[in-house]
Design a protein around this nucleic acid. Structure first.
Length: 439
RNA sequence: AGAGAGGUGGCAGAGUGGUCGAAUGCGACGGUUUCGAAAACCGUUAUACCGGCAACGGUAUCGGGGGUUCGAAUCCCCCCUUCUCUACCA
């Protein structure tokens, strides 16, 4: 979430950013938050004062009570003088009264903090200056296009036909065991999956990312840490019995490794890569977009995450983008890079590049990766900080990107490389697969 | 899942309801000493919020949340978690 100090000190900037993201209730929300902030601070002050008074009284009462109690022991005879007796009674009265004030201040404070928190959670991240204006997908900026689209024969088939033809992915079977959107990978289809995962992980490791195998169920705090909660609650599968969420992306467990951490500067930047299954409820999605492998409830993905010092994060973002492009180039897939416009960007991102591969038989671009810089938006929730040369602790920047998501890569590989007798896989996968063609 | 024992500062490890943010040791940092280093000695060594330009002052935090009390690391309740034994299991 946004830092309250930024809202206070750079209100105009915040409002402009929210407008660029097409966040409609920005001005009202910001005004409400600042108003609550005023009240919060004054309540905090009166709480502190009442508490100070209570503490002082307690300090005065202690010795007097002790002396009074020792009166029972003749040798000590610590009876209080009349003056002391009066003081004691007065201290006790004051202490009780201060206690009441603390109590009410605390109740009000909790209420105000809760309201402020809820409003802050609603605010999306502010877009980076280079983010194009725009409301939706058609306003995204095409940064570059790479590779040549293959020309397919007249009998070319979309991947949902090809997978049947070669019996490598079975949707009906998944439907039987689980439900729609949970395909079963078989034979060369299963081996191709495993090959791609290994290829992606090896490439990530070679690029300096530490390989991590995180849990794929996370608790509520982790969901809040990376911003899936509270606003995207319905998109995650939730195990109510244990109050755990199936991860929609490895970003969640990986980034949360550093929740509530102050990272030593010599450990920066943090670079992590992990392969996990990802689960998305995608409630309400339907239509031609979701055929075949285009949209699934469960899929595999290799994710890369970086945590950097603030002035390093945009360099890291470009490096991550270059890494993902390298993967696509090695897979020999035509792709394009988009810089998302303000209205199409994710809630938590400051700048996002989407990478799309050309799906030849479908004749459309498929998003296979999204590489984002969140700046301090996640770090603020995560309390992920570092100490800059002996100074104060400071929030870090978090970034992540898919490198890569499997199903759409598979779809493009199948469609783009099909021949009438089989599918020729790109060279780089031959040794990983143990075969060169499907069929 | 059942029984028992624990969870204290970067780590180790004390702690009686009453100046306990918390002894002590280690580690780290700064200094003295040294040609340099080691050793020794001295000092510093959490996070967050509020007020203040700042110096600084206040408040909270001893797994988490409630409660008792003028006052809780210390007493009571609930939850989480670690270890040991038993049961079960890949």
């Amino acid at each position: 979430m946004l830092q309250i100090s930024v809202l206070r000190d750079q209100t105009e900037l915040v409002l402009a950013g929210l407008a660029k993201k097409h966040y409609a209730t920005g001005p009202a929300d910001v005004a409400a938050i600042l108003d609550l902030d005023q009240r919060r601070r004054s309540l905090q002050t009166s709480h502190d004062q009442a508490k100070t008074e209570g503490n002082e009284m307690a300090r005065l009462i202690g010795p007097l009570l002790k002396k009074q109690n020792s009166a029972a022991i003749p040798a000590l005879d610590g009876s209080l003088s009349p003056m002391e007796g009066i003081s004691l009674a007065s201290y006790q009265r004051q202490a009780t009264e201060a206690k009441e004030r603390v109590k009410t201040a605390l109740l009000d404070l909790a209420q105000v903090e809760k309201e402020q928190q809820q409003l802050l959670y609603k605010l999306p991240n502010l877009p980076h200056a280079s983010v194009p204006q725009g409301r939706a997908a058609q306003d995204n900026e095409v940064v570059r296009e790479h590779g040549t689209k293959p020309t397919l024969g007249p009998d070319a088939q979309p991947h949902w036909e090809l997978i049947k033809k070669y019996d490598i992915i079975d949707f009906e079977l998944g439907n039987k065991i689980t439900g729609a959107g949970f395909p079963v990978y078989k034979n060369q289809g299963a081996r191709l999956q495993r090959a791609l995962i290994n290829f992606f992980l090896d490439e990530a490791r070679n690029a300096g990312y530490t390989e991590i195998q995180p849990p794929i169920l996370v608790n509520e705090a982790s969901g809040y840490g990376t911003g899936q909660l509270p606003d995207k609650e319905g998109q995650m599968y939730h195990d109510a019995k244990d109050d755990l969420y199936l991860i929609p992306t490895a970003e969640v467990p990986l980034t949360n490794i550093y929740r509530d951490e102050i990272i030593a500067p010599d450990k920066l930047p943090v670079r992590m890569a992990g392969h996990t299954p990802c689960f998305r409820r995608e409630a309400g999605s339907w239509g031609a977009d979701v055929r075949g492998l285009n949209r699934l409830h469960q899929f595999d993905k290799v994710e890369i995450v970086q945590i950097t010092e603030p002035d390093q994060s945009y360099g890291a973002l470009e490096a991550m983008l270059a890494h993902v492009e390298g993967l696509l180039q090695q897979l020999n897939l035509p792709y394009r890079v988009l810089r998302l416009c303000g209205g199409d960007m994710g809630f938590t991102a400051a700048l996002t590049y989407d990478l799309e591969v050309w799906s030849a038989a479908q004749g459309r671009w498929l998003e296979v990766s999204s590489v984002s810089n969140f700046e301090t938006y996640q770090a603020n929730r995560l309390k992920c900080r570092y100490r800059a040369d002996g100074g104060k602790t400071q929030l870090l920047h978090t970034l992540n990107g898919s490198a890569l998501a499997l199903p759409r890569i598979v779809a493009a590989l199948l469609e783009n490389n099909q021949t009438s007798t089989g599918i020729d896989l790109p060279q780089v996968l031959h040794s990983y697969c143990g075969f060169e063609r499907i069929g």
